[in-house]
Nucleic acid binder design. Structure first.
Length: 564
RNA sequence: CGGGGUGUGGCGCAGUCUGGUAGCGCGCCGCAUUUGGGUUGCGGAAGUCGGAGGUUCAAAUCCUCUCACCCCGACCA
């Protein structure tokens, strides 16, 4: 084995290790070696069942990429439908195979988020919570049940939410005098408390966030994307001026877009919703929109300028420095467990879940390889030691000691679950004080086998950290490339219609005359909805033109496409 | 709310038309075998057939009622 890494020193080389915000793994100060700079192990006998050759898995510039060779059907392919075959089924299969969640079944439209899925949500929460606190917000909790009369106080709010309310009419064995609704969102009940808490401009701004579950009785549900009950965070703030409230709306929208980009490795377009798509009761709704692999858009987060609407409905007033009483200016903003759906549809592939390392429940899985009991004991001992060291480096590590399962079966299992890096550790590695490492999106060699690399024990944490960094970046670049490849600007109605022929969908920038009538007419004709009017710096440069539908003047292009 | 469908071991299904011993695959448990890309064999445990009523000597199967969930459309983070 001439290419084998020679035995190294005892220490695991964590000197010179530092942590970076939002990045739990160690990062070496020394220059990162390219992933291909280390020797590759001699080739192993290839299994007859090994999957598709060609088509490097690390690239997915086109969505779906239906021309991708399928190769011999494997067990994995039988368990997960390909995206090209049936995108909706693929989505369900990925969730089932990665053990993220399941349909509750006993409760209509609701889901059970399983530990592996919830861990992703916890990672999201942790980072978002940090960002909220850094921008001055404090967490609080308000009642799950809201008096029906509260919902009725804001005209547009009632109208918007009435159809999806779940109502409690009985409690303690008696009919309630006034029914409660299970919160669909908390503007009303928080408005009530703001009116108690706010009296002076010195009480402002009031910056509150709540982590909670909410219920909206949806007619059609999909795991994570739209369920009867979901988990989210709702920020609620009150300000003394509209200008300050609008700054808050934009600030939190940017928190969301930064989070999407940095943590989820997901590019988003920031924009303003049309009147039709606006939050019920808001003056303006700002949004981040992402393009999924099937060409559809997903609204991933919203930030609302509530104006004084709820202030007036709940009598939230304050006395300003001049001694005059005024209604507060409020905002609200939220992201939900839908983001997990966005994550799946942005990065995952036909082999299962792919998660960016910064949100991955498990960064590294160590698969021990052995034949005999004595080998097993030695390999387990080494695996535990390496795992402990990697954990010391801040990595989330799992040693897969399941008995009666061949290593190959474990490989597939962890790949379906989206673990970014797998380390294979066997007797030969013990001799060489090394491990065989394989990335979740490893390219395939000329013979269709995934490229693996040998990493020495010495400095393993740093080497793994570098690879996780590269993986995080690779995912973002790939997602951005996919979005760019599926974004067009059109100027004529015919070109616009062509963008949505059949089941096609993509990001389309087009001129619109700004009226709801035209927006609805376009939707009727093409199923395409207006996702947002892009903020400055998003999409093509703002330039006047003519509406593709009516020919009326338009100040700038808007983003339109079919949504999920 | 319309349209369609499904309820049978943990999961996926067959059996229902034509009433007569509760079946199959996967999973699970045990033993052996295997282990660097989805081992194999033998043995085993596990089901009030969604619920109620009815017909019958006999009901998963036929009749009536009922409940729940899923999928497709209209609403939405």
């Amino acid at each position: 084995m001439p290419e084998w890494i020679p035995a190294g020193r005892e220490e695991c080389g964590r000197r010179g290790v530092e942590r970076v915000q939002g990045r739990p793994w160690p990062v070496g100060r020394r220059i990162a070696q390219g992933p291909n700079s280390l020797p590759r192990r001699p080739t192993l006998p290839s299994s007859a069942k090994s999957g598709a050759a060609g088509s490097p898995k690390g690239e997915l510039p086109d969505r779906l990429n239906p021309s991708e060779p399928k190769g011999v059907a494997t067990v994995a392919e039988a368990k997960i439908k390909t995206r090209a075959e049936d995108y909706a089924q693929w989505y369900q299969d990925v969730i089932a195979q990665a053990d993220l969640a399941e349909v509750a079944g006993v409760v209509k439209g609701c889901m059970v988020i399983k530990p592996h899925g919830y861990a992703i949500w916890e990672a999201m929460q942790q980072d978002l919570d940090r960002r909220f606190k850094e921008t001055g917000h404090k967490n609080a909790a308000f009642p799950l049940l809201i008096p029906m009369s509260f919902i009725n106080k804001e005209a547009e709010h009632v109208e918007g939410f009435a159809p999806e309310l779940a109502v409690v009419t009985q409690a303690g064995g008696k009919e309630l005098e006034e029914p409660y609704v299970i919160r669909p969102t908390s503007e009303t009940i928080i408005g009530h408390f703001f009116s108690k808490w706010i009296d002076s401009h010195r009480d402002l701004p009031m910056l509150i966030n709540q982590w909670a579950n909410v219920m909206r009785w949806e007619l059609r549900t999909r795991l994570f994307l739209r369920t009867g009950e979901f988990y989210w965070q709702e920020g609620h703030t009150a300000h003394s001026t509209h200008v300050e409230a609008r700054e808050e709306v934009r600030r939190m929208l940017n928190v969301y877009s930064d989070f999407a980009r940095e943590m989820m490795a997901m590019p988003v377009v920031r924009g303003i919703k049309s009147a039709n798509e606006r939050f019920a009761g808001a003056v303006e709704t700002q949004t981040i929109e992402a393009l999924m692999q099937d060409g559809k858009a997903l609204q991933c987060g919203t930030s609302h300028d509530l104006g004084q609407n709820f202030g007036k409905a709940f009598d939230v007033t304050f006395q300003n420095a001049e001694g005059e009483r005024d209604f507060v200016w409020q905002t609200s903003w939220g992201v939900s467990t839908r983001l997990i759906g966005a994550l799946i549809m942005t990065h995952s592939d036909d082999d299962g879940l792919v998660v960016p390392p910064k949100l991955a429940p498990i960064h590294v899985v160590i698969v021990p390889i052995y034949r005999k009991d004595d080998e097993k004991a030695a390999v387990y001992e080494a695996a535990d030691k390496l795992a402990a060291e990697l954990k010391d480096d801040g990595l989330r590590v799992e040693v897969d000691k399941r008995e009666g399962m061949k290593p190959g079966a474990k490989y597939y299992d962890w790949e379906r679950k989206g673990v970014p890096i797998r380390l294979e550790l066997g007797p030969r590695d013990l001799e060489g004080r090394s491990v065989m490492s394989k990335m979740r999106l490893a390219e395939l060699d000329e013979r269709g086998r995934p490229v693996k690399e040998i990493l020495p024990w010495d400095g393993l944490g740093v080497a793994v950290g570098e690879r996780l960094d590269a993986f995080q970046k690779q995912l973002y670049d790939r997602a951005l490339a996919m979005r760019e490849a599926n974004t067009v600007s059109v100027d004529s109605w015919d070109d616009f219609v062509a963008c949505f022929e059949g089941s096609k969908s993509q990001f389309v920038y087009a001129h619109w005359d700004g009226t709801s009538e035209t927006e609805l007419a376009i939707k009727d004709a093409t199923k395409a909805t207006l996702r947002c009017i892009p903020l400055e710096g998003e999409g093509p440069a703002a330039e006047p033109g003519k509406c593709i539908k009516t020919g009326n003047p338009s100040a700038q292009r808007v983003l339109s496409l079919i949504h999920i």
